[in-house]
């Protein structure tokens, strides 16, 4: 009684699918994401929605709970994350969302581009095909502005959408239904 263990955590809604091999920033190249976005109005990566991987969130985090994964996008570490929201503020793309650990299933793409467009530059982005909507047993997922959105009020975190997603755009943070990009040990 009286214990409050309602832990919050952050998820990054991008898998870095538009990057080509060798295009992964290393920690030496970390910079200011917001500055970079301003300096390159024409865009940095093929996708104008996704993570640019310069690590503003990594720098903002005081608990070392977020890192740039091998795919070049940020990834959170729930064993350390407390859901404080500093990374959310640091991300110029608005890619980071606070949730609870009982919702490990999340759409890892916020692109509002048409499916055909997304398909051109990213092999993991949401193309709004609706496969997840069709297979969700709880009617907890919908397509909104060309991307899948989960309603956590209804979600039972069964993982069906992650398994059925033909693009791997819906991820399981627990790494059971989809593979998780682990932190590269320095």
């Amino acid at each position: 009684m009286g214990r409050n263990r309602k832990k919050k955590v952050a998820v990054v809604q991008c898998t870095g699918g538009c990057r080509r091999a060798g295009d992964i920033p290393d920690p030496e190249r970390y910079g200011d994401c917001r500055q970079a976005v301003l300096e390159h109005p024409e865009g940095i990566l093929p996708c104008r929605w996704g993570c640019i991987g310069l690590g503003s969130c990594v720098q903002a985090c005081r608990l070392d709970a977020i890192y740039i994964s091998r795919s070049g996008s940020a990834e959170t570490d729930w064993s350390r994350c407390v859901g404080c929201g500093l990374c959310v503020k640091a991300c110029p793309r608005g890619l980071i969302r606070i949730t609870a650990p009982e919702y490990p299933i999340y759409p890892a793409c916020v692109s509002e581009d048409e499916g055909a467009q997304t398909r051109k530059y990213c092999d993991q982005g949401c193309i709004a095909c609706g496969m997840c909507v069709k297979n969700c047993p709880a009617e907890a997922i919908r397509i909104e502005n060309n991307r899948a959105v989960i309603d956590e009020e209804k979600c039972i975190a069964c993982g069906m959408c992650a398994v059925k997603c033909p693009r791997g755009a819906i991820r399981d943070h627990d790494g059971i239904f989809t593979v998780r990009e682990e932190r590269v040990v320095k």
């Binding site: 069964c158 398994v163 239904f177």
Partner: peptide, 16 residues
Amino acid sequence: IVDGKAVKSCVLTTKL
């Protein structure tokens, strides 16, 4: 239970 997490076995596949 899969790797410590409660999981629905109808969703998971042998491949996954």
